[in-house]
Design a protein around this nucleic acid. Structure first.
Lengths: 212, 212, 212, 212
DNA sequence: AATGAATGAGAATTCATTCAT
DNA sequence: AATGAATGAATTCTCATTCAT
């Protein structure tokens, strides 16, 4: 393996260990030594690849955010052309195993909670939300052209965005099992159905395998 | 002042200082010494009134939760008899200064994020959510009797619940200013309007003073 | 004891322990834990009274420098009115037990050696040297008025200053025993005698008890 | 280049880098990695050519000392036959660019300061001083035969020795610029003139180029 | 020979907790 | 009750040294 790839691989491994430790012990219980232990390396390695614990956390958030944004782009590209279908594709992604695994959700909620104290966290979290909200607005605008306009469209787009966020907190509180994620997705779908009664959404259960 | 009341007062003062410090420094940045400094007492006092830092945090969450539950009961009692009005009253409370102040929101998100690692936190947070969800279900069931049934009522009630949660995270990320809270409330109201188009809600602006 | 005095006392105790450890282990071998052990306290105490190791060192240098300047002022005040007598008094001080003890000399040479890398050290060391040089110049100017002018007076004053410095390094290398300090003083006196042959200096041996 | 010569060359390169790093960061700030970086090699190389950091430092001191002793022998050989001339030649060397460069002076003062804690350092530093002192004694004895005896000759020879040492500390504190070295040399020359008024020394400025 | 990733001992620092005053 | 000095466990970070490539 070329050296750069190996470095990237090691960093990724440590970041994933970090997310796992946050999920298990919370951000307040995160110890460099535990990260190293989970990654199966000596703890010196962590400070070798990340200048400091702060840097490790910043890079962890960046990894999480970039992964989400990438997955969202892919999901949109893979979905059908209808705006409603695209909304459903995004919702499926948001509660998929890849994106909304127990560990990722724990990490996201940790970063959200620290974001008032850490400007770098805040900026990155807000950037993700901004993009997600813009996407929701665009898709809902298109969907409502198809199904009939509403004057409070931006508020309803924000509601979708924040509904997803709130469901993630719920998953954090109750455990992001496969069943819980499916139920969360059903809540979102119910919301979309309430808004777009005419557009028949795909069956939640049926989609799951594809999304996971 | 009788001794017990004075003790309760001191504890409350320290708990509020704890919430303020969490808001400023995050849970990872919370130091007993800072709590004491904010409360204007020496740090020995904190260990005098709370067995340990863990206990201080548990009591802080309890304070937060009890305060919310009490305020919700009051808000329901003060609202009109219509289910839709009661829903609006709860929403108004959820984004009021008393309940959704910058500091409280920061504390709530912190407790949520640590709840997987701390069973005591988890239990208390889930209890609050359970009650809120039950209330939403009951009120929406009643509201839908008034306005027409839906089969996915429980999902829509969960959506309301989680929408509020998500909006709190949004407030945490973007700052819980008065204007931001008002906007969050508008999002909730838009959701309710989408569900109950017939029921004309009160004006958001007009309510604010009452709720605050 | 009033609280402030106790704090000052503790700080002094730790600074003296620091000097002792530098003398024994060198600056590179200085460990906070050793300082605490020598002072007979737990190592937390060191960070309690000094924000950091750097601060401890800066305060140690300040202590050393202030002590020297104070002792020099006292020595001058106590000496006779003749400039030559004052020069001899300063020399006696410079090799006295109080000022040129084994430990102090080790500390001074350590600070000198680090002064290029540490601007704060450099400033303080230079300030001491500046004052000492100014004093030498003034006294030698007066002494030479008494005994006959020389055009290279400033150079000869600098020589006295640097001779003392060099003798301190010599004491560091060979051990600042009482006898070694006495010998160092004899070297200085020989220099002064070479410059001021007419002015009969006091006997080195006889002075020692007074100076120590 | 034969293998052994290449090895010697590499070692010299690393030793010079060590001296440069001591000058920049002090002995407490010396890191193997910095030495390697200054030498332009990877840090593994340092441990390849020197068993340990301690060994690197010991070899650095040895290099410094041997270089000085060699240069002194050359300077004496190159000087005229008169003892006073030889003294002046040694003084010129002591403040020459080759011997008293900013970096060397920083290294010497570092080794002096650590010499109480490190017997190997102490022995080597003392050996240099012993030889220098013996040379001063011999030359001054001869010079005084030429110009008239003094009973305190050994003390005056020690004074010369320590004056040079002290001036090096001064250069360490104030910066060993060309001008500062020239001034230091003037101080020594003034001292020699005070001792040997009859022996007209060469002009300090004129000598400089030869010495450097 | 050279490189630099990996290791882990060692040191500084932080900070909750204790307890004498 | 309140204070804050003292303690020392726990943690981060540094960096010399090892060693596989």
């Amino acid at each position: 393996m070329p050296k750069e790839a190996q470095t990237a691989q090691r960093r990724r491994q440590l970041i994933e260990a970090t997310i796992a430790v946050i999920a298990k012990q919370g951000l307040t219980g995160l110890r460099i030594a535990d990260v190293a232990a989970v990654a199966g390396v000596s703890y010196g390695v962590v400070n070798f690849y990340f200048k400091s614990k702060d840097q490790l956390l910043a890079d962890t958030l960046e990894h999480l955010a970039a992964d989400y944004e990438e997955a969202a782009a892919e999901a949109l590209a893979a979905a059908g052309p209808s705006a409603v279908d695209q909304l459903h594709a995004v919702i499926a992604l948001d509660f998929s195993d890849r994106i909304a695994g127990r560990r990722q959700i724990a990490a996201w909620t940790a970063f959200w909670s620290e974001s008032r104290a850490n400007p770098a966290f805040r900026r990155r979290c807000v950037a993700v939300q901004d993009r997600f909200l813009a996407m929701c607005r665009r898709l809902m605008r298109e969907a409502l052209v198809e199904t009939g306009r509403r004057e409070d469209l931006d508020l309803l787009a924000a509601a979708l965005n924040n509904l997803v966020t709130g469901l993630w907190v719920e998953l954090q509180l109750r455990g992001a099992t496969r069943e819980a994620r499916l139920e969360a997705r059903r809540v979102c779908v119910a919301y979309l159905r309430a808004l777009f009664p005419q557009a028949a959404p795909g069956d939640v259960e049926a989609d799951e395998e594809t999304a996971a």
